[in-house]
């Protein structure tokens, strides 16, 4: 019968088709290029003293492990600290310094500082973008009387500039970290 010929052709086709070998090479691993794993704030007291380092580090990025947060010590009352921020991607070797990228695109970025929980201190921007609006990778931190509370840092990508604070800045959050600190 004629139809049997058609069927046999079809099955032959099916066989050839399913016998395709799959010896593809293994895919290469991807290291996230834009992830920020490490945030470090270095606060150097004006006129000498102990430098305080605040760091949060999350080597698995979006992975399940929470960031490791470290605070090197307590602040001294009634002092002025010169702060600087460094952002790293440590999934790459050598690690990539993302602060440079943020500073290069200064008009599209801004850091915000949040003091909470009764900490007696204040902050001020120490660097600005080309339009004269705050950028904030450098800042000053002035302590008051002994107290404890939180110091938070938020980096916004494409915020509305100028702005008054986080509430009207908009944009997307690239970093949101909070440290528990004390002044003693």
């Amino acid at each position: 019968m004629k139809s049997s010929k058609y069927f046999s052709i079809f099955f032959l086709g099916l066989l050839t088709f399913s016998s395709c070998s799959d010896d593809d090479p293994a895919p290469e691993p991807i290291n996230e290029e834009e992830i920020i794993t490490t945030f470090t704030a270095t606060l150097v007291p004006d006129g000498g003293g102990t430098t305080i380092t605040l760091q949060t580090r999350d080597l698995d990025g979006d992975g399940p492990n929470p960031p490791e947060v470290t605070v090197s010590g307590d602040f001294v009352p009634n002092s002025v600290y010169n702060g600087s921020l460094v952002l790293l991607n440590e999934t790459e070797t050598p690690s990539e310094n993302i602060t440079n990228e943020v500073e290069a695109e200064d008009e599209e970025h801004q850091f915000f500082y949040t003091i909470g929980g009764g900490l007696n201190a204040s902050t001020e921007y120490a660097n600005f973008d080309d339009d004269g609006n705050p950028l904030g990778t450098a800042f000053t931190f002035s302590t008051g009387a002994a107290s404890s509370g939180t110091l938070g840092f938020t980096l916004r990508h494409e915020p509305t500039k100028p702005n008054t604070d986080l509430a009207d800045a908009g944009g997307e959050t690239d970093i949101a970290v909070t440290f528990s600190v004390s002044i003693q």
Partner: peptide, 9 residues
């Protein structure tokens, strides 16, 4: 919720 350096998700 999981925490990352960008905040909570």
């Amino acid at each position: 919720v999981e925490f990352t350096i960008r905040g909570a998700f």
